[in-house]
């Protein structure tokens, strides 16, 4: 069985569910709006012009996570997985197609979101943004897109393990909003390798901690990869 029809089918699944399209579209306004708000406040000792411009990913990632979670969780409702796996018995390949169908739209939306946040954020910052170089800006936009994609994949993998969207969101959202927010300020500890802290290094002009911008994304990619592998293992091994 070829991969393209599986991908086509998974892409159709996303396109034909309004809640998924809505979650995907919410990434842009959530990120851009909060980036603009954060950029109006340029005081404080730890002010970082690049992170101000991309501060909104903290909120936008919740939409990306909701998207990744919902896309996979839809398969675990009712007898949906029976119908899916009866049509596509190659579970590993099916799950790979699902992951690609989640990743590509988020990556695309992430690039647009990054671009819009940059424009909006820099406009809000005004002269404070002058210190940002072209390479900082490109790194921020690409980093924002990759980061959002990895968080969506992390959520997708976790959902396949937990077999429930509610369970996944009640693990990830409190984690991002509370745990990481609280311990995240303590630099140079284990907090540096939490998936969100590590991945957001790419959005800072000044690197903090041991991880560089791409090293940080690689750490987040490892988290997402681990979640996907665990998800694929669970899908393959367990009875549908």
């Amino acid at each position: 069985m070829h991969f393209t029809p599986l991908l086509h089918s998974e892409w159709l699944k996303i396109r034909t569910l309004r809640s998924l399209v809505a979650a995907l579209c919410a990434v842009l306004p959530a990120t851009a709006l909060f980036s603009a708000l954060a950029s109006t406040d340029s005081d404080g000792a730890d002010f970082d012009p690049l992170f101000s411009v991309f501060f909104g990913v903290n909120l936008g990632q919740i939409a990306a996570i909701a998207f990744g979670t919902t896309a996979v969780a839809a398969e675990f409702r009712g007898g949906a997985l029976h119908a899916t796996l009866a049509a596509v018995p190659w579970r590993g390949r099916w799950f790979a197609a699902k992951a690609v169908a989640v990743a590509v739209p988020v990556l695309g939306m992430g690039l647009v979101t990054g671009g819009v946040s940059l424009v909006v954020g820099e406009a809000a910052l005004g002269a404070e943004a002058d210190g940002l170089t072209w390479s900082d800006e490109v790194r921020g936009v690409v980093g924002c897109a990759v980061y959002l994609t990895l968080m969506a994949l992390l959520a997708a993998g976790l959902t396949a393990v937990l077999r429930s969207g509610v369970a996944t969101l009640s693990v990830l959202i409190p984690f991002l909003l509370i745990v990481s927010f609280v311990v995240g300020d303590v630099s140079g500890t284990v907090a540096d390798v939490l998936p969100d802290r590590a991945g957001q290094v790419v959005l800072h002009a000044e690197g903090a901690g041991l991880l560089g911008p791409w090293g940080g994304l690689a750490v987040t990619a490892s988290w997402a990869g681990a979640a996907l592998v665990a998800g694929a293992w669970s899908v393959r091994r367990r009875d549908a």
Partner: peptide
């Protein structure tokens, strides 16, 4: 092979036609 196992297989938010199109696409 065609099978009916569970009438709840189709997602409530999808239209009947889209449910079938999704399945059809995966098997060309």
């Amino acid at each position: 092979v065609g099978a009916l196992l569970d009438a709840r297989a189709a997602h409530g938010s999808r239209t009947g036609r889209d449910h079938l199109r999704v399945l059809a696409a995966s098997n060309r």
